[in-house]
Amino acid sequence: MSALQTFGIVIFGVGAVVSGWLVFRTDSMVRAAYWLMASFVAVGAILVTLDSQFLGLILILMMAGEMTIMAIFMVMFMMNPAGLNPMVMVHQHRTAIAAGVGSFLLLATVALVADFPADPVPLGADPTAELGFELLGRSMLVFESAGVALLAVMIGAVAVAGKWGRFGDADAGSVEPELEPEEGGS
């Protein structure tokens, strides 16, 4: 591993963590979605550095589309999508911070204490081609199952999101939420 690669991994790694953190620190929903995309792009760049170009680029390609859809959904549903007013919409804040820090410490301990076998990708290997042969050879069933699962989800998602349900209109009797903060929230 060259110094340039190490440098890239550290820079992109810090970028991924910081932009991931900023997702929950911004008031603008569009910014939140694109900070998350920045985090994914940074991780994709690390994957490219780690010899898996195809997966890294596919991750970036998927996320660009998904985050724009996410931004549009947030603008549709949030009360303050543009972030023109500061807004905090959190609950069980302390527990959440504790859980986040706790899971980081746990995983970090494992990463530092455990003794991993060193068996790196051999030089001159072509992981992209190997992945292709794996997907359409030995592990074709897994690959096809993922495809069928995606098809099932498409149908299921349309059924769940549709306006007409088994119990009549989905929005029958719906009410706007009160503007006063509800009890028990944050």
Partner: peptide, 26 residues
């Protein structure tokens, strides 16, 4: 180890976000 630490940090931020946010999309 460095990469796993980065991964752990991202995971921690994700846990915080999933537990603390009120909005579905968040």
């Amino acid at each position: 180890e460095v990469i796993l630490l980065i991964s752990a940090a991202i995971f921690g931020v994700g846990v915080y976000g999933a537990l603390s946010q009120q909005s579905f999309v968040m």
